[in-house]
Design a binder for these strands. Structure first.
Length: 581
RNA sequence: GCGUCCGUAGCUCAGCUGGAUAGAGCAUCCGCCUUCUAAGCGGAAUGUCGCAGGUUCGAGUCCUGCCGGACGCACCA
């Protein structure tokens, strides 16, 4: 039996290498405490080096007090005896290159088909509590625009990736419904409310939200309350209008997110947390440990404002945890700062999570240290917070920048973009670059049907396979496909497909969902290359009517590739196309 | 001034937590397509990995210092 259930090719051979190392420990060649050295088994960059390569000898040579090539020779001799290993050769400074038997890759095709959509699914479920991924968390003051889009997709894909890798995952949205801008929202809604009751409000005053999206909110409020809140002092209606307006905005945001297929599990309210006394409790705990004190902030560096005055405030000693200055948790009027609430929120979140991941816009980079400091202090280091910063998306149309003006409310909304190019394109494109680098998004490019558009290229591969399988449905093929009829290039494609479980593990460990997109582009490219062999030589096509055996084998390979493409796209939240139009 | 991120082929970007001769697409050059699988295909050429030190068997990757760019820098959110 070649396959071991639950383990992919790489894990199996990691075990085999570990066994070979253990044998050297047993006979005294390698000291026991060196056996946990950083031994890596990976596919070599250069395929001519074989299927797998390990640095085991180089990693162990120092402890074994021999030279790497000598040690590599001994390890390779042991490995070469394994029935699944065709050759084990020492190369370069002490690499061991393994060429596996073709049966290994043939068996992996069968393993992919047997596992189906579960191929590559991990079993990392060893934490007692879920991993919490907080993303989007846009202020509930308006519709989603493109500025939110990238973080939304990256966060959602990361959550899916972690779930597929075997973690329990909670997708969370932090609703900033307690700050001053929510008051602005409430006043803006009140204005629209008066408008809905027939008043001529003229231009929306400076400092209020001008967008038309508040008109329906005003109408709802008018229908519900009639004129009861007209001409009354703000104190009488502000809290009510705040609640109603936030609810309406969150409904709108949820609807926008649904267009991308994003659904959060938990919405945490800043106001509710504050009302429940969470920040006060966090402050009390920190004060008891002398981590909050009354102090004065230094004037801001750079350009010091003219009206700067030193004020004594309760400060959290974030400098103890690597921050540059200590941070105020309450304002001089005694109310909570954003950070004061946020630290309490993260403490609460940490109590129900094994790890925290935040997806933030890069404009919040300056606040990362303080919140990491707070989490470390309030959890005594037991829960790690990993803040992923996502850079901006620059919009273009045929190479020309799309103009946006936030002040006039003239921004490109998420809904507009999804309507124009489609959800799959948006989601895929947001993952075609490392999140920490700015991304250019061109409306013209992303719908182009050509090699250089990765969305199209991946979809096209899947559609080609689907098309061939439809065509093959009427053929009389052997029930057991002779996978030994596949040649080296075909097995090379199988080898790439077999890397999917490893991609999942590594992308999840690094928390980098974009790696899935790059892997898919590679896999699709390899498939297209194979497909194109049939242009010159019909005998190399997937369907060879005169040869049912080889046809069956190639169709199994193609089916396996399509399965991996579907699964990987699924992790990205993208549907696989059966055909292109 | 300080912090975070970025700097890799002409362009757009990967680079698997330190591995071998640094990769892909586009553009360029050469060759192929009277569509049974060309919304193209095959091949070639392309590098001071921003600069300079350091760490070690080994650095695009880690550390330090510079240079250039983006973002941020009050009790805002």
């Amino acid at each position: 039996m070649i396959g071991v259930p639950g383990l992919d090719v790489f894990q199996r051979f990691e075990g085999i290498v570990a066994d070979a190392v253990a044998a050297l420990v047993a006979d005294g060649t390698v000291p026991a405490d060196a056996a946990n050295a950083a031994i890596v088994l990976e596919p070599p960059r250069d395929p001519s080096h074989g299927d797998l390569a390990t640095n085991a000898a180089m990693a162990l040579a120092k402890a074994a007090r021999t030279n790497p090539r000598e040690l590599a020779t001994r390890i390779a001799m042991g490995l070469a005896r394994h029935p699944d290993i065709a050759t084990a050769e020492v190369a370069g400074p002490g690499f061991i290159n393994l060429k596996l038997q073709p049966t290994v890759w043939q068996a992996e095709i069968s393993a992919i088909l047997a596992a189906g959509a579960d191929y590559g699914r991990g079993d990392d479920r060893h934490e007692a509590l879920p991993v919490n991924v907080e993303y989007v968390s846009a202020n509930p003051t308006g519709p989603m625009h493109m500025g939110h889009c990238r973080g939304a997709v990256v966060g959602d894909a990361l959550a899916s990736l972690l779930a597929f890798a075997g973690h329990d995952v909670v997708r969370e949205y932090y609703v900033n419904d307690a700050g001053g801008q929510v008051d602005v929202l409430a006043r803006s809604a009140h204005l629209r409310y008066r408008e809905a009751l027939g008043e001529d409000i003229g231009d929306v005053p400076e400092g209020l939200y001008p967008g038309d999206y508040l008109k329906p909110v005003g109408e709802l409020l008018a229908a519900e309350f009639g004129p009861a809140h007209v001409g009354r002092p703000e104190g009488e209606w502000l809290a009510l209008f705040r609640t109603r307006a936030v609810d309406a905005m969150m409904d709108m945001i949820r609807a926008d997110l649904a267009l991308l297929g994003i659904v959060h599990d938990v919405f945490s309210s800043e106001a509710a947390l504050q009302a429940a006394g969470a920040p006060a409790a966090a402050e009390a705990e920190l004060r008891a440990r002398d981590l909050v004190y009354e102090g004065t902030l230094p004037p801001p560096k750079g350009e010091t404002p003219d009206d700067w005055e030193p004020v004594e405030l309760p400060l959290f000693r974030s400098t103890r945890y690597g921050d540059d200055i200590d941070r105020p948790i309450r304002k001089s009027d005694g109310s909570w700062t954003y950070f004061g609430n946020d630290m309490a929120y993260h403490a609460e979140k940490a109590r129900r999570s094994s790890a925290l991941v935040n997806i933030w816009g890069a404009d919040h980079a300056g606040t990362v240290k303080r919140i990491e400091a707070a989490v470390e202090a309030l959890t005594n280091g037991s829960v790690k917070l990993d803040v992923k910063l996502v850079q901006m998306v620059r919009l273009f149309r045929g190479g020309e920048p799309v103009k946006m003006s936030k002040r006039s409310g003239n921004f490109v909304t998420l809904a507009d973009v999804v309507e124009e190019v489609g959800r799959d394109v948006v989601r895929f494109m947001m993952l075609t670059k490392r999140p920490e680098a700015p991304l250019d998004f061109d409306f013209a490019d992303v719908v182009q049907q050509s090699r250089e558009n990765p969305v199209f290229y991946v979809h096209y591969a899947h559609a080609r396979i689907s098309s061939v399988l439809r065509k093959a449905a009427g053929l009389d093929l052997p029930t057991t496909a002779p996978l030994d009829r596949l040649d080296d290039e075909e097995l090379g494609l199988a080898r790439l497909a077999a890397q999917w479980p490893r991609v999942v593990r590594q992308a999840a460990a690094a928390r980098e969902p974009h790696r899935v997109a790059f892997y898919l582009a590679d896999l699709a490219g390899a498939f297209h290359t194979l497909w194109n062999r049939g242009n010159d030589d019909p005998a190399q096509r997937l369907l060879v009517e005169s040869d049912p055996g080889v046809t069956a084998a190639r169709l199994q390979l193609a089916t396996a590739v399509a399965q991996v493409i579907r699964t990987a796209l699924g992790v990205m939240g993208v549907t696989a196309a059966e055909e292109l139009r």
